[in-house]
């Protein structure tokens, strides 16, 4: 399994790369989607800066995903799957219809370990959460995905009364708002689930 870890040129990619390798993936860091079996959009940086970095590759990524390339967006990477964000300028990938909104909660950023539950309206359930539904995962976000179709929301989380998507899925695009690479054993299991789904 060749996984392309998309590089926006900001922040820390190696904990994610190392976590994927530990689950058996061959990881390449870069921007060229050709020859990848799966794409991971990591969650570092601010939306505007990442969208600007992504702009040159937007169509290549969209075409590859439309052709069936599985993609996992993590945190900001998940937010980039949508059309745009209240956080900053620039376009997302538009792979999941909808936008990104600011959290409405007493304490923002939403920082720490929170309980993720699979949405009950999905028959087979979110495959990424197999064996770990109801676990705590590590979040660090001030913004949240707001998909146009609620059917895209495959797991939820609540902070200070504000409920928002913990995971989304639309076609071959999936995203998680939390950081599996920073969520201990449960997070590593999620990455293993992703690689299994891609096989």
């Amino acid at each position: 399994m060749n996984v392309l870890l998309f590089d926006y040129g900001t922040g820390n990619l190696h904990s994610l790369g190392k976590a994927l390798e530990l689950q058996g993936a061959r990881v390449r860091t870069g921007t060229a989607v050709e020859a990848a079996d799966a794409l991971v959009l990591p969650g570092v940086g601010a939306f505007g800066a990442a969208a600007a970095r992504l702009a040159a590759h937007r169509y290549a990524v969209r075409d590859a995903v439309a052709a069936g390339l599985p993609v996992l967006g993590i945190c900001l990477g998940m937010q980039l799957l949508l059309d745009g964000s209240a956080e900053g300028e620039g376009s997302g990938l538009g792979l999941v219809p909808g936008s990104v909104r600011r959290l409405v909660a007493g304490r923002v950023p939403h920082m720490g370990w929170n309980v993720v539950r699979a949405a009950t309206n999905h028959g087979p359930g979110e495959p990424l959460l197999r064996g770990i539904d109801g676990e705590r995962f590590y979040f660090a976000n001030s913004f949240a995905a707001d998909p146009a179709d609620p059917a895209a929301v495959t797991a939820t989380v609540t902070h200070d009364g504000d409920g928002f998507p913990a995971a989304i899925r639309w076609g071959s695009a999936a995203g998680v708002q939390f950081h599996p690479e920073k969520s201990g054993a449960a997070g590593l299991r999620l990455l293993r689930n992703f690689l299994e789904v891609c096989r």
């Binding site: 570092v44 940086g45 601010a46 800066a49 950023p109």
Partner: peptide, 8 residues
């Protein structure tokens, strides 16, 4: 914060 996000 502007470049890397407030969360970090």
């Amino acid at each position: 914060a502007e470049h890397y996000g407030a969360q970090c």
